[in-house]
Amino acid sequence: MMAISNHQSNHRFDAPRLVNASPLVQAVGLSKRYGAIEAVTGVNVEAYPGEVLGIVGESGSGKSTVLRLLNLEEMPDSGTYTLDIPSVLGEDLYQLDRFARREVQILNIGVVYQNPHLGLRMRFTSSGNVAERLLITGERTFATLRQAARDSLAISEFPLNRMDDPPRVLSGGMQQRVQLAKALALKPALLLLDEPTTGLDVSVQALVLDTLKRLQRERRMTIILVSHDLGVIRTLADRVMVMRHGRVVEQGLTDQILEDPQDAYTQQLVHAKL
């Protein structure tokens, strides 16, 4: 038997040739340190319109940091980030001033956090949580706000007879639906999901995943999904990036990563879960 090392690098892939669209998300060379800790090192992220990109890795792998960088919540130490959106075409979003960056974030990016406390005002009404997104953009007609909140909650399959209940009295699954409705209120081009179903009961988790799947299919939204749960990734993602110690160790089509992982770490990860 021949000695083999670093197997992954043997196979070279061509650049995309059939897909005409340019990537919606293009982040190059993202690096971020917290003091002595290198959270993310040289990560590239590319997501095409309508595609669901999964990012997997164990806690501390840097996957949530990547999501925060893509959500413009944090600035990287180095790297560039462009969105294929007319208003900021070709511009590095990290170079925009605070106001312009905030506008790009509000209008084009929606986010759902694992912890609903990060994304919701727990004591305000659920509909108000959703309406706030429109208020930020200057909508000042009450009837319009109500209708938008209702529409957005409905597509998140939230029961409308509870739309004015505050999230703190809702179940975990319902809270995630409110977050989702809020994230979708302004019809963003990019939806970021940070462990959206972690901590939910398995049956509730399946329902929330189903809603996400349905939405993705009907709205052809670009989604970047962070999860440590390979079941969630398998259900939703078209492609997957595997992260470890702040770096991408492997990426590929979801079924390929799960059934023919090339990297030693991915093989361990997949075998540990299946």
Binding site: T125, A131, E132, L135, L145, D164
Partner: peptide
């Protein structure tokens, strides 16, 4: 930033309740 969305949210909540 003239970021007053949250003030309007308070009014929204009053009208709903």
């Amino acid at each position: 930033d003239s970021d007053y969305g949250q003030m309007w949210l308070l009014l929204y909540e009053q009208l709903v309740r």
